[in-house]
Amino acid sequence: MDIVISGLLLGGAYALVAMGLNLQYGVARIMNLANGEVLVLGGLAAFWAFVSFGLSPLLTLFLIAPLAFAGSWAIYALFLRPLVKRAKSRGQLEVDTILATFGMSFFFVGLMVSLQAEYFTYSFLAWPISLLGSTVAANRLVAALVAAAIAAALYLWLNRSRSGLAVRAVAVSPGSARLVGIDVGKVSALAFSLGGMVTALGGCLISTFVTLDASAGVLFTMKALIIVIMGGVGDIRGAIIAALILGLVETAVATIVDPGLTLVAAYAIFLAVLLFRPQGLFGRRSA
């Protein structure tokens, strides 16, 4: 039971991060390998605000959101839009953006090392509370609840509003979206920026219960990739389920077998999905 609860709480934070990558990859068609670094930047901001000003990470969220959105928009407009314009096919855009964002991830790592070379250690709501008979740290519960609230808001926006519908239309078919008067370039920039924002918010939340450091990003990029591919590209519901599964499996392996093996377990699921359900858990058909 402990495993299930801790696993679901961890999965909640993962789900938010995977939603971010899903917006960037599924809508804007940008495979962002600097995703994990953006997450760690969110964590660094939380750490820094907490240590310097005693600001609660829950308040830092409100600072991170506009900054991460604007920063992602700038990255898209300056570095990625030229690649989007140049790409003749989706495959070419994928290769180009993978290389560009991979390079960008090193830039971010270097930047963060120069800002804070040590672990981002701080203690926020680190007291135990009991939940359905098992004991968890309060920060995990709070992080999962806030992540769930953000994810739910995003989900509702995507599924209930006209602008959310336009985002989904671009995800389904950019070629048709322009025929109904949607500015595909602008919606892609919006999706990329929202994705960056959500990722940084996830990082802020995760930093309350995982001790991050400047080079931790790549692990989270891998996890987000695993979740997105397991859930099916562009499938938000699939990503949420996949994130919860990953959280459960990682927690189970760490508790029962060995904490060092969580990544191995994640890869094992990843391989299994690639071998048996390459279209994702709920994948409809190959596009």
């Binding site: 006209r162 989904r168 239309a169 078919s173 070629g175 048709s176 979206a177 109904v180 008067g181």
Partner: peptide
């Protein structure tokens, strides 16, 4: 000016109602 392209160009993964709502996006 609205185009119904060769091959229809609808949004296959969205519902009929969503397709029509998107038509009224402008």
């Amino acid at each position: 000016l609205a185009l119904v392209p060769e091959g229809r160009g609808i949004f296959p993964d969205l519902s009929v109602a969503e397709n029509l709502t998107l038509g009224a996006y402008p």
